[in-house]
Amino acid sequence: MNRLQALYATTIGKKFIAAITGIILFGFILGHVAGNLKVFTGATADGIPHIDEYAHFLKIAGAPLVPEQFVLWSARSVLLISLILHMTVVIQLALISAEARPISYVKSKKRAASLPALWMMFSGLLILGFVIFHILHFTTGTIVIGEFNHGFVYNNLESSFSNPLVGIGYILVMLVLGFHLNHGIWSLFQTLGLDNPDRNKFLRLTATGLTIAIIAGFISIPLAFMTGAMPDPVSYPHELLTGHR
C-alpha cells in the first residue's frame, strides 16, 4: 500500500493510474461495442431480438452462483471507480501542469503534438457528458426520446435513432471518442513504458486500427436505423424474455 501511495504522489504514478483505468474503460468499450453489434444478428425463434436477450443476460449473469444483477453491479462499480480515478488523476495532472506554466507564451507553435492529444481533456469531458446522457437515455429511461420501455432494447434504439438529430448526435460523439482513443491507446503503452522504437509503429497502428473498428461498430447502429436498413420493431411479451433461460 505504501508503494502505491508513494507512486500516486508522483505525476508518473498518476499517469500510471490513468493508464490502468484507461485499460479497464477501454475493455468496457470493447465489450460494449461487441454486445451492441448483436443488434444486427436478428431475433430468436420466439421473436426476441438478440440484443434484448443479451441485455437480459447481463442482468442475470452469474446466477445462481451469485444473486441476479450481482455481476452487473460489480462490473458497474469497477467501471465507476475506474472512471472516477481516471478523471481525478487527469484533472490533478492538468492542475499540476497549469501551475508549471503560470505565464503563457504570447506566441506558441506546435510541431509534433497532435490535435487529439492536445484536446484530450476536452474530448474526455464531452465523453463524460455523453456517458451521463447515455445512461439516462438508454439505461434508466429518464430522458425519453420517442418511446422507452425497460428491457426492450431493440425497440428503444429504433425509437430514438429514427430521430435523425439523435442519430447524428450519437455519431458525432463517437467520432470524438475515436479521437480520445486514438491518442489514449498508444499513450498508455508509452506511459507504462511498454513502447519503444522497435514496436512503436505496430502499437500506433494497433491503436488506430482498434479505434477505427470500435468507432465503426458504434456508428453503424444509429446509421443503420437512420437509413432504414433495420427490420421494424417487434412486440413480444416481456415475460417471454425473463422466463427464457
Binding site: T11, I12, K14, K15, L93, I96, S97, A98, E99, A100, R101, K110, R111, A112, A113, S114, A117, L118, M120, H183, W186, S187, Q190, T191
Partner: peptide, 14 residues
C-alpha cells in the same frame, strides 16, 4: 514543480 508528461512528443520535436 515541472508539469506532467502527456506524451505529446513536442519536447522531442523541439
Amino acid at each position: 514543480g515541472f508539469g506532467s508528461c502527456r506524451n505529446y512528443a513536442e519536447c522531442e520535436a523541439q
